[in-house]
Amino acid sequence: MSIQHFRVALIPFFAAFCLPVFAHPETLVKVKDAEDQLGARVGYIELDLNSGKILESFRPEERFPMMSTFKVLLCGAVLSRVDAGQEQLGRRIHYSQNDLVEYSPVTEKHLTDGMTVRELCSAAITMSDNTAANLLLTTIGGPKELTAFLHNMGDHVTRLDRWEPELNEAIPNDERDTTMPAAMATTLRKLLTGELLTLASRQQLIDWMEADKVAGPLLRSALPAGWFIADKSGAGERGSRGIIAALGPDGKPSRIVVIYTTGSQATMDERNRQIAEIGASLIKHW
Rank of each mutant, 00 (worst) to 15 (best):
G263E: 13
V106A: 15
C75P: 00
R59H: 15
R91L: 05
K71G: 01
V214E: 04
K71Q: 00
G154K: 11
P253C: 08
L219Y: 02
K32H: 14
K252N: 15
R91S: 12
Q274A: 13
M67Q: 14
G251Y: 06
S221C: 12
A40I: 05
S201M: 15
A280Y: 11
F58D: 02
V82A: 11
T126C: 07
K53N: 12
F64M: 06
G194T: 10
R41M: 13
L136N: 01
T112V: 13
I278H: 02
V214S: 09
M209Y: 00
Y103F: 06
I275G: 02
Q203P: 01
K232Y: 00
I256T: 03
K32Q: 14
V157A: 07
S128I: 01
N134Y: 02
A123E: 04
R81F: 07
P217N: 12
I275N: 03
F228C: 08
M153Q: 11
L136T: 04
S281M: 13
A132L: 01
G226Q: 14
D83Y: 03
K32V: 11
L219M: 07
Q88P: 04
I278M: 11
A246C: 09
P165A: 07
A84V: 13
V101W: 05
G239M: 00
T126A: 09
T138V: 13
L223E: 02
R238M: 06
L199Y: 06
T139E: 15
D83W: 02
D113T: 11
A276T: 09
T27K: 05
H151G: 09
L135Y: 04
I45S: 15
G242R: 01
A133Q: 01
L150Y: 11
L219A: 03
G251T: 12
E62D: 07
E237Q: 14
E26A: 12
T139A: 14
K32P: 01
M66K: 00
G194Q: 09
M153V: 07
W208K: 02
S264E: 05
H285L: 09
L223D: 01
T198H: 08
I259S: 01
L192A: 07
T186F: 15
H94G: 07
S221D: 14
L89Q: 07
N134L: 01
L100M: 14
L135I: 11
R159M: 12
I229D: 00
S104P: 03
T267C: 11
M180E: 08
P25R: 06
T131K: 02
T116A: 14
G263W: 05
K30H: 08
L196C: 13
M180K: 07
N168K: 02
Q97M: 10
A132V: 02
E195Q: 14
T198M: 10
T261A: 12
E277F: 06
V42T: 12
R91I: 04
Q265E: 07
S221T: 15
P143H: 08
E35C: 04
H285C: 09
F228Y: 06
R273G: 12
G43M: 00
